[in-house]
């Protein structure tokens, strides 16, 4: 084991500092901002509203539709060309699937609820931050939900199971001189709070079954911390101000 001390000094299960708030976009029915370390997601919810094109309408229930977009200046390298690409389309799809199990649109047939997530700056874990922000924005919009969804990535960097990887940890072989041959895996997760069921599970890299299960266990604990931040932010706007 060579990656003993994390590059930013965190403990293995420690998340980066989080900051969340709701009602950040007045035009939207609901909105939220979620920051974890240097990754920042802003989510806005519009709807239930009429769906276009019409043929997408489902007469049994409303449709949840997520969008994910990195702002052109939000990547750590060159400017990103604006507009949709394969990556953003896939992430939007897995985001939708991560949130659908808790959202109840049965009372809104033929309508759509749109969730737009934008990232002004990123340092890995963007789809997780996007999902955490989106779940808050949906709750802020008053959309019926059976629970909240919280999301964070776990993974392995050079034999060490860690939570909430940074860009440098995802590329540890470049940044840690002792980890040149390191195997890395990055596992974004999302979980329903009460049932502990996974609604997002992806992985990049290589990992054994034993390590994967350990990582998922660590993930469950890490996700609790995200949940606490989401709940606090959702309630904060409604706490009686001291006069």
């Amino acid at each position: 084991m060579v990656y003993k001390q994390r590059l930013d000094g965190r403990k293995g299960d420690e998340l980066r500092p989080m900051e969340a708030k709701t009602k950040v976009i007045p035009n939207a029915q609901g909105s939220a901002s979620f920051k974890i370390g240097k990754t920042w997601a802003i989510a806005a919810v519009y709807g239930p509203r009429e769906i276009y094109p019409k043929f997408l309408a489902n007469p049994k229930r409303g449709i949840l539709r997520c969008y994910y977009n990195m702002m052109p200046f939000s990547g750590s390298g060159e400017r990103i060309r604006p507009g949709s690409n394969r990556r953003s389309q896939e992430i939007a799809m897995v985001m939708t699937k991560a949130l659908e199990p808790v959202v109840d649109l049965s009372q809104y047939p033929n309508s759509v609820v749109d969730v737009f997530v934008e990232l002004p700056q990123t340092d890995a874990g963007t789809r997780c931050a996007a999902i955490s922000a989106a779940a808050m924005a949906l709750a802020d919009a008053g959309i019926p939900m059976k629970d909240l969804v919280s999301s964070v990535a776990v993974g392995m960097a050079d034999d060490k199971i860690i939570a909430d990887l940074t860009y440098k940890e995802e590329h540890i072989y470049e940044f840690n001189p002792e980890s040149l041959n390191a195997v890395v895996s990055d596992i974004p997760l999302a979980m329903i709070h009460n049932t502990k069921e996974l609604t997002l599970l992806q992985m990049d890299g290589e990992i054994t079954k034993e390590d994967l299960l350990k990582a998922l266990e660590l993930g469950q604990k890490a996700i609790e911390k995200v949940y606490a931040v989401q709940v606090k932010a959702l309630k904060e706007n409604f706490i009686e101000e001291s006069k």
Binding site: A28, R49, P82, F116
Partner: peptide
């Protein structure tokens, strides 16, 4: 200079 009028910013 480029501008993006995001669907996040208005219906």
């Amino acid at each position: 200079i480029n501008a993006e009028l995001l669907p996040l910013s208005s219906s």
